[in-house]
């Protein structure tokens, strides 16, 4: 049954995942392309090469986090798309408890997350092997792939949890988040005219501190995503 659910999940996710998989393999290669075939010597000052490599790694590092978030989100949402389409009738007719059904779906999604990460790791390792790095710089394909795995899995689990309810649930939760993101600050400014503490409340800072800083749920998407670093 697990295999069947994995196949079903892949069929639902394959088209949106295709460009993501290409990016997961290709972006690490592009990040290292500046260092391929580069030559350095002490007398000829290798520093400019080091700047190019670290700058490239920093820029592409941002895209790795985005690819991880997109991959996890697609896999999380697509896990339940068939159930939503058929109003959960098939799932309810199965002689398995809800938690087991969800666990099977989650396990299938985790395998797809692992496959995406494997592709990313392949690209990162190939890029690292091809790169001729100046002294002082190192490649971190293993650590970065682990980072990518956890980030993708976090995004997958978050969206999987959200999508496992009804469409109404997802709409309400996402609507609240979007509403807060768009109207939160102006609304607090307006309410601050009546009660000043509300006006002083920094919603953006609070959200960032809660979600990203202090080991928040999205903290994995921050931090160092550089394939080549000191």
């Amino acid at each position: 049954m697990g295999i069947q659910m994995l196949k079903l999940h892949w069929r639902a996710a394959r088209w949106p995942m295709l460009p993501v998989l290409v990016a997961a393999f290709g972006l690490p290669l592009m990040a290292g392309s500046a260092a391929w075939g580069a030559t350095y010597s002490v007398d000829h000052l290798s520093a400019s090469g080091a700047v190019a490599v670290t700058d490239g790694a920093a820029v592409f590092g941002l895209t790795f986090a985005i690819v991880a978030a997109i991959a996890g989100s697609i896999l999380g949402i697509s896990a339940w798309s068939w159930d939503h389409r058929q109003d959960h009738v098939y799932a309810l007719s199965l002689p398995v408890p809800r938690w087991k059904y969800s666990a099977l779906k989650f396990g299938g999604g985790t395998i797809l997350v692992g496959a995406t990460t494997a592709l990313f790791a392949l690209g990162a390792t190939t890029s690292s092997l091809l790169a001729n790095l100046p002294a002082g710089l190192r490649a971190y394909p293993g650590a970065l792939s682990l980072h990518f795995l956890i980030a993708t899995q976090t995004a997958f689990a978050l969206l999987f949890a959200l999508a496992s309810g009804t469409m109404r649930t997802a709409t309400i939760v996402l609507g609240c988040v979007m509403g807060l993101a768009i109207f939160g600050v102006p609304l607090l400014d307006f309410l601050g005219n009546f009660w000043s503490p509300l006006g002083d409340f920094d919603l953006v800072r609070f959200a960032y501190a809660t979600l990203v800083e202090n080991d928040g749920p999205l903290s994995i998407f921050a931090g160092n995503w550089m394939l080549f670093d000191v």
């Binding site: 809800r98 938690w99 969800s102 666990a103 989650f106 190192r138 971190y140 650590a143 682990l146 980072h147 956890i150 980030a151 899995q153 976090t154 689990a157 978050l158 999987f160 949890a161 496992s164 309810g165 009804t166 109404r168 649930t169 309400i172 939760v173 080991d215 928040g216 749920p217 903290s219 994995i220 931090g223 160092n224 550089m226 080549f228 670093d229 000191v230």
Partner: peptide, 28 residues
């Protein structure tokens, strides 16, 4: 550069997975 994800990241990934398995409890 070689910094491994901390235990908090693993905790959140696992915690959200558990939430997903128990998701019927927080349906709106």
């Amino acid at each position: 550069g070689g910094e491994r994800p901390g235990p908090a990241s693993l905790f959140w990934a696992g915690g959200l997975a558990l939430l997903a398995l128990r998701s019927t409890r927080w349906r709106l």
